[in-house]
Computed example of a mutant assay.
Amino acid sequence: MEKAIVLVVGILSTALVQSSSTTTSIIVGLVAGGLPVRIAVPMIMGSNIGTSITNGIVSLRFVGKKEEFKQAFAASTVLDLFNLLAMLIFFPLEILFHPLERLSTASADLFLGDSDLSMDQFDLVGAMTRPLRNLIRSATGFLPEPFNGIVQILIGIALVFLTVQLMGKLLKLLMVGRAKDILQTALGRGPITGILAGIFVTILVQSSSATTSLMIPLAGSGVLGLNVIYPFTLGANIGTTVTSLLAATSVTGERALPALEIAKVHLFFNLLGVLVIFGIPFLRLLSVIGTERLATAASENKLIAFVYLIGVFFVIPLLLLGLSLLF
């Protein structure tokens, strides 16, 4: 029950901020602060689901045109159904056998080794943020504990939100034209190329929400079909894990290993999800068929689209959270 609550919290928090990059970076910070990796794993899964709401919101711009809305809504929900299916497969397995945690622990140990190597040598983010971090600590130093720490956390979260928002605006100005050129030339060459293009573009913009949202207008206008968009969004799912890996490089000391472990859980969850679901024809088609039927129903009755978005990302998670607190 505890892990189900954490999963729901991951969905809600990411749906509210509309950025899995923000949520996973915060999760890495929580693990670095002492949260057990095993507890944080379901939150990572939930963040994958919650981030898809941005695509659905973008697709609503086509709501006045039936056929265009059908294509746009299908493109926006294919990642939803994929992530839900991945959660249904891996969440029970993780509760019973902890494969993601074990795999991430083994690979993190291999990366760090038994030598004197530590994450201090890979502290890329820390080197850039240390002056601001020290300034915040100095400014809040007059407050008694634990209030100084609480204020620092609130300032840190606010800065994360502000940074993601500003970065998104800047990257749209700098990258949107280039990203569209990449899409036009690369996506029609097969699913593997589409996945690789999704990874590459998302690493550039550091946001799967921004990357996949670029696809919705192209889908609505009929430029790209669902068979092309599907693998690209899966690549975006993998590419967004770079953010949490970068966040883990800023953690030093004894909590460096757990921080790297949870970042790798994010990577392995998305990577194995693509290998298992997209690699098995039945599972691959399940997401497509479900998406097409949902998009057809939503184009016939626009209320279904609104009910779906509000229900999947807010109502159902809140109900589950409420029931868990009651019982």
Results as ranks from 00 to 15, higher is better:
102 R>S: 15
78 V>M: 07
52 S>I: 14
46 G>M: 09
31 V>T: 03
73 F>Y: 12
95 I>S: 07
101 E>G: 15
42 P>K: 03
65 K>S: 14
85 L>I: 04
82 F>T: 02
80 D>C: 08
46 G>V: 07
56 G>N: 12
28 V>W: 09
102 R>A: 14
98 H>K: 15
62 F>G: 04
29 G>N: 00
68 E>C: 08
38 R>S: 15
52 S>Y: 07
92 P>M: 02
83 N>M: 04
102 R>T: 15
92 P>V: 08
84 L>Y: 14
48 N>W: 07
75 A>H: 00
71 Q>P: 00
52 S>D: 14
89 I>P: 10
87 M>R: 00
107 S>V: 15
49 I>T: 07
67 E>H: 01
29 G>W: 03
110 L>Q: 10
34 G>F: 09
84 L>G: 05
68 E>V: 07
93 L>A: 13
53 I>V: 15
31 V>D: 08
57 I>Y: 00
108 A>P: 10
28 V>S: 09
56 G>Y: 03
109 D>I: 08
61 R>S: 14
98 H>I: 01
48 N>C: 10
76 S>P: 12
45 M>F: 15
55 N>V: 05
102 R>K: 15
97 F>P: 06
88 L>P: 08
71 Q>L: 15
38 R>I: 14
59 S>H: 00
72 A>E: 04
32 A>F: 07
51 T>L: 12
80 D>N: 11
38 R>F: 04
32 A>I: 07
65 K>H: 13
68 E>H: 08
60 L>P: 10
104 S>W: 09
63 V>S: 11
78 V>G: 01
51 T>C: 12
46 G>S: 06
62 F>A: 06
103 L>Q: 08
93 L>Q: 03
48 N>E: 11
38 R>K: 12
45 M>S: 03
44 I>R: 05
87 M>Y: 00
57 I>S: 00
52 S>G: 05
70 K>V: 07
74 A>N: 06
92 P>T: 06
85 L>K: 02
90 F>W: 13
50 G>W: 05
71 Q>G: 10
44 I>H: 05
39 I>R: 01
71 Q>N: 15
96 L>N: 01
79 L>K: 03
88 L>S: 13
49 I>K: 05
54 T>E: 06
90 F>T: 04
36 P>T: 04
